[in-house]
Design a protein around this nucleic acid. Sequence first.
DNA 1: CACTAAGCCTAGCGTCACTAGGTGTCAAGC
DNA 2: GCTTGACACCTAGTGACGCTAGGCTTAGTG
Lengths: 131, 131
Amino acid sequence: MLGMEGDLLKGHLDAIVLAALAGEAAHGYAVIEAIRRRSGGVFNLPEGTVYPALHRLEKAGAVNSDWTTAPSGRRRRVYALTPQGRATLDRHRDVWRAFAEAVERVMADSGGGGGNGGGLGDHPPPLAGAP
Amino acid sequence: MLGMEGDLLKGHLDAIVLAALAGEAAHGYAVIEAIRRRSGGVFNLPEGTVYPALHRLEKAGAVNSDWTTAPSGRRRRVYALTPQGRATLDRHRDVWRAFAEAVERVMADSGGGGGNGGGLGDHPPPLAGAP
DNA sequence: CACTAAGCCTAGCGTCACTAGGTGTCAAGC
DNA sequence: GCTTGACACCTAGTGACGCTAGGCTTAGTG
């Protein structure tokens, strides 16, 4: 099991949630599923992680929410990116690139590294959240 | 300033420190400089971050240390990876790949993304620690 | 009716990078 | 000689924040 790996996405959660909303508005539960699906099952975030993040983002003005009633009759709170949220996402993306490249540079060399190469397209086990 | 971005490397610090030691043994201060140099200045980690990490890694058996006296006459504690540490690094690398790919997948799409393209090779401002 | 899935919410915990402060050595400047 | 600054190490305490663990409601299914 890899679930024991600590808070890997500490500081990256906002970026991930915003990215999940970039394509189209969605309600909280759908955000969770979108993240799980898009990440290939790697990010299986519990509700207690995503809902507070959405509230935080709304308070910060990055998203706004509307209560709607789904065709099934259930009430949902649908979140959408604001223009400011889109800008925040862009900034997060830049920060992410810089961060990822930096980690890659530090890890590159050391002999063993690099060789890996492929690996894309698989469905690795979740790294976070596993109820 | 980007320094305000929270604990981006929460959970990734061990991997970074281990990677910095993968090439050759080094003392704490040199580890800090190696990380800063290799990351292109992005990771400018304060001592209060790296020393506890090294102690933690030593207690975990991933590195061992030897007190030496530098030609300059100063006492240094030189850390080296143990075989177990090398295995830990490999595991961290795998976890990192999975994590990074997952984030990339979540961020990819949303229209704006992907287009960025270049940007590699620059020396962006530090994301963490800047005294 | 019981039970599951959908859908939302929040108080509190635990982790861990970072702040802020401390020690001591060596070289250079005034 | 005394201060400044780089080198080199250490640690107690703080704070942010993802996550656990709980609780709530409604719709479908047996």
